[in-house]
């Protein structure tokens, strides 16, 4: 497997290899010399057509810790704003000798197009495409879940994960449902009917409209951001009503089992899907998710780029 485009492409063994590799690489973050020579001389391009803080910084930190050269490209302030197509941008990156392209794009399928068009020979890593997938986010969520629920070992068999909120616009939800299912977890999606995508009944998960029931026996609750920037219609009557019915506040959190952790892929709308005191509580692993993201992305880049051929798949 040369590219990482979707968590649907990962077998259980592939996913565990990435998580185990990330666990070894996490040690690097704790030592004074946070660098490995592994990708010396390789060039990684961060090709971001959409705004991002943590994903772009996380990929950049991961690539630099593996000693790769990193070129950051954001659509704003580039030739894209003059109308350059994805193809012409790709040909430019190919001419510059990019070994990997980390792409975020508003159009679902853009990474797949880039990987299979023949425009470039680089490895393509999907860093979020439209409302489709965000595989490295799902991998870092699985890593965080495994660390808290399974002492960092094995898969997530039997774990109960509830994903709450704007599933319709969420690439994180789709990637997570597919990956967590592969790892043996039971996933429940909880959202108002207007914020669930068409065909969700085909996904390998349960669906609920009632938050209090959906989180009653959950081992982890993952709150999704309400993506107001992608909303071109009214999906719920008011922010207040959404927050009351689908937001996680301190009162609701107190009903959770004592071991249950609270996750959020960021960026958060504090006061909307998650209350500020919940986000900052001891159960929240939101900041830890960010640091785990660097280890997981290091693992993905090492396995895809480190050897003569990819270490993922083909087993």
């Amino acid at each position: 497997m040369q590219h990482l485009l979707s968590t649907a492409d990962l077998t259980r063994d592939d996913a565990l290899l990435i998580l185990d590799t990330a666990a070894e690489l996490a040690q690097i973050s704790d030592r004074p010399m946070k660098k490995l020579p592994t990708l010396r001389g390789r060039t990684v391009v961060n090709l971001f057509y959409e705004d991002s803080t943590r994903t772009r910084i996380s990929f950049e930190a991961a690539a630099k810790r593996l000693s790769a050269d990193v070129i950051n490209f954001s659509a704003k302030g580039s030739s894209v704003s003059k109308g350059e197509s994805l193809k012409d941008t790709a040909l430019t990156l190919q001419a510059m000798g990019a070994d990997a392209v980390v792409i975020r794009h508003a159009a679902s399928g853009a990474p797949h197009r880039l990987a299979h068009s023949g425009w470039i020979e680089s490895t393509v890593i999907n860093a979020g495409d439209g409302t489709h997938e965000h595989p490295t986010q799902a991998l870092l969520d699985a890593y965080t879940l495994r660390k808290h629920l399974r002492d960092g070992d094995g898969d997530l068999a039997g774990a109960r994960i509830t994903i709450v909120g704007d599933v319709l616009h969420s690439r994180v939800a789709r990637s997570n449902v597919l990956l967590l299912n592969t790892l043996g977890a039971h996933v429940t999606l909880c959202a108002p009917p207007t914020l669930l995508p068409v065909g969700v009944e085909e996904w390998p998960c349960a669906v609920s409209y009632a938050l209090d029931q959906a989180i009653a026996d959950a081992d982890a609750v993952m709150m999704l951001r309400v993506q107001l920037e992608r909303m071109n219609a009214s999906f719920f009557p008011s922010a207040h009503e959404y927050s009351r019915r689908y937001g996680l506040d301190a009162q609701r959190m107190s009903t959770l089992p004592t071991h249950t952790i609270v996750m959020h892929p960021g960026p958060m709308n504090r006061g909307m899907e998650i209350a500020a005191d919940v986000a900052d509580s001891k159960r929240s692993v939101i900041v830890e998710q960010v640091s785990n993201g660097v280890s997981v992305r290091m693992a993905v880049m090492y396995l895809l780029l480190g050897g003569a051929e990819s270490g993922i798949g083909g087993n």
């Binding site: 290899l17 185990d20 590799t21 070894e24 690489l25 040690q27 490995l36 020579p37 592994t38 090492y302 396995l303 895809l304 780029l305 480190g306 050897g307 003569a308 051929e309 990819s310 270490g311 993922i312």
Partner: peptide
Amino acid sequence: LDITMYRDDLRLKKARALLPT
């Protein structure tokens, strides 16, 4: 001490799983 990431033949073979350090 795992030395996989420091091997001089890393690029000659398929990417390998890391061993514990």
